[in-house]
Design a protein around this nucleic acid. Sequence first.
RNA 1: CGGGGCGUGGCUCAGCCUGGUAGAGCAUCUGCUUGGGGAGCAGAGGGUCGGAGGUUCAAAUCCUCUCGCCCCGACCA
Length: 517
Amino acid sequence: MATNITTRAKDYAQWYLDVIAAGDLADHSPVRGCMVIKPHGFGIWELIRDQLDARFKATGHVNAYFPLFIPMSFLAKEAKHVEGFAMECAVVTHSGLESDGAGGLKPRGEIEEPLIVRPTSETIIGHTYAQWVQSWRDLPLLINQWANVVRWEMRTRLFLRTMEFLWQEGHTAHETPAEAEEETLRMLDVYSEFAENVLAIPVLKGEKSAAERFAGADRTYCIEAMMQDGKALQAGTSHNLGQNFSKAFDIKFQTRDQKTEHVFTTSWGVSTRLIGGVIMTHSDDEGLVLPPAIAPVSVAIVPIYRKDEEREAVLGYARQLQQQLAGEGAGAKLVRGEIETVVQPGTGRRIVLDLRDGLRPPEKFFHWEQRGVPVRIEVGPRDLANGKAVVVTRVDRAKNIVDAAGLTAAWLDATLRSAQQALFDRALAMRTARTFVVNDYADFKARLEGGGFFLMHWDGTAATEARIKEETKATIRCIPAAESLATADGMVALREAGTDPVSGAPSAGRVVFARAY
RNA sequence: CGGGGCGUGGCUCAGCCUGGUAGAGCAUCUGCUUGGGGAGCAGAGGGUCGGAGGUUCAAAUCCUCUCGCCCCGACCA
């Protein structure tokens, strides 16, 4: 058992922090609310980024980069937007530093118009699109950017809510409302497919209520995931911005029938928060558990030996296994200190051989286990003599002795696939077991403490929603897109009319209530 | 931003109440023994006690201010 990790049962919040520390993912920075993403954590982000980027390209988008600083006046142009973000903007008011006369420094000159550090880029991009778009022939404009943004948060948590975070934000402009809506939903589908197939996180697709909507959007769609403590995590959002920003920034175009109209825009994003979601969905009391698709190291080979002559023989055996697992055409071996890595490009085969002499095998087992490595292979003199190897899979910590000859690239691909599937299945089973139908407000309140998604009728009014939030801290996570959903109470139809148990008013269907991160 | 808790070698903490000039375990380094789930022995290095003021002959310890972290609330990707 891991002694450096608090158990989930004892203290879930502390467990989360312990897993990040043990997994070598991130550190707190000297600046409140910010984090240093360490190489292993960033390696996960790179895999997320690359696989998402490929999906954006496949749906016709291109990348560009817009500036970090936005003139303060820009934010004021869209009323709801400024209302939503004003309180969390970092504002740059001075340039330069000078001595404060006491051995320290103070800001020097005040600048004419304060700059804000982007909390999101709708405004600067709206301004730019106004210059780029003249005619319907310039549309659609399908652009994404990978960037950092800053939101001045009161309470922060590593990955889940930091003052600065990394994300992508897609910004598109279209000729018609229908095209904008189609784009908004297309990207929601991209997120959903990505979350489930790459992150192995089952998500609910749906629309946000007006209260939860993005500031400046006509409609906000989201994917919502359930963490192991039963709380909801908004994992991605896609917004149909209608003409709100095109009117604010005067993004006009000449239509096919010679008229002038404002474009219809969308925006959509996911962030480093996804890493927090992965941690809280899959990890266990032993540390990080990573889906193979985003595991910077997918296999760790740990050699075991006593004497020098054993060492040479075992290392030869281990290296041969490493090459065999990587398959033909693998990249050159990368030697970093006492760790040798072989990667097969375009696959999930990222295999390290742990040659560190200072650590004993059990310590290496813990090392790779806590970093979430999906497969560990142990080879020692006994295995060498018998042509075997010990294979341990992280998802279930199952240990098996197998024939070394069978440890091929094809075997590895299949093993990683099944680990990926097992994680998804486990997470889905967990969500289903903790998704409940409730028809009574008192019942809802009573069961909320235990966590989970609660499918309850809602009359559609902001007043009822606000009351529930006030009284229970639960919010409407989404109005599900699906017709029905698997729950602990069986398959439940979501679109059947009913009665809101809080207000007693008629309801068009059930929505998902939960406490959220 | 409100309430609570905590800041002492890299990490976890003792010492603080009752001031007298800093300790333990783990980690690190060296050597030997080891090695299939967090090793043993021997030796070594490493701390302006979060920071700034103040009280005092003397401050990790008492007082004031400040910064940061964690938890709970309001806000949020």
